[in-house]
Design a protein around this nucleic acid. Sequence first.
DNA 1: TCAATGGCCTAGAATTTTTCTAATTCCAGT
DNA 2: ACTGGAATTAGAAAAATTCTAGGCCATTGA
Lengths: 141, 141
Amino acid sequence: MAERKYRELIEQLKTAGLRPTRQRLALGRLLYGENGDIERHVTAEQLHAEAMSAGVRVSLATVYNTLHQFTEAKLLREVVVEPGRSYFDTNVDDHHHFYFEQSGRLQDIPSEELELKSMPEPPTGGRIRRVDVILRVDEDG
Amino acid sequence: MAERKYRELIEQLKTAGLRPTRQRLALGRLLYGENGDIERHVTAEQLHAEAMSAGVRVSLATVYNTLHQFTEAKLLREVVVEPGRSYFDTNVDDHHHFYFEQSGRLQDIPSEELELKSMPEPPTGGRIRRVDVILRVDEDG
DNA sequence: TCAATGGCCTAGAATTTTTCTAATTCCAGT
DNA sequence: ACTGGAATTAGAAAAATTCTAGGCCATTGA
């Protein structure tokens, strides 16, 4: 990971009130590092496995905690596609997703490519915090 | 539940290749019965509790199995709102949802009230099996 | 600089949600 | 009714997620 990105991550953590601990930096590096430009959709399990093979000793629980803290801090976005399968997306800009049911793969749809004609008002008067659109794609059958 | 609806349920089960067993009929009655017109969004846990207080002896596992079979048979639709929280919706027509994060409540949005401007093609060439839109509403904060 | 303090962080344990599979039940065809 | 065999049920196991006690690490004051 570029030195600049690394410093950036530390700053983002601090801003979010999260100490830049060894574990968080290691996971952050795995998430955004090396090829930090490409969109990533990882499960907690996958990231934990990555950490293991990278020689980073963290428990799965810490991976979950960290992913949720990152999500809270708007460094990640959580996408729930199926019961018992949620992904964390390194792309936090407004966008949507294709979900390929057979392979379990997720792919971003830029917000320009999928817009809503109109947005209904919440009946109870709250405000809409987020719009999640998932296009479920059947690749074979 | 009206006698007509009951017979209808039996027919739907048979058509789906599901035997009209005591448990399935009981759960079907709980889902569609009495006030079978109003939209319902139940979790497996909730339905199990209902069955219990109605004196129907089924295990939670059977409730899960039955809900998934009903979903497979297009008698229900599953909506995943959070990791570890999925609802089964008695409304199987095209429509979308408001999700109220504080209360955990789900509410239907008729498809006329929320339409997409355009539908992007799946890059891998499969076909879009379903479009899920969830508007996440924050009621207070 | 060093020790004490207190809040934050970690990960084992527990919980919750979901699925699997052996045993049972049920139905169709005698 | 009885039997064969597939379908169904639910206890047990697995998978996913969360909780919390204990440990660690900054910060402060000496």
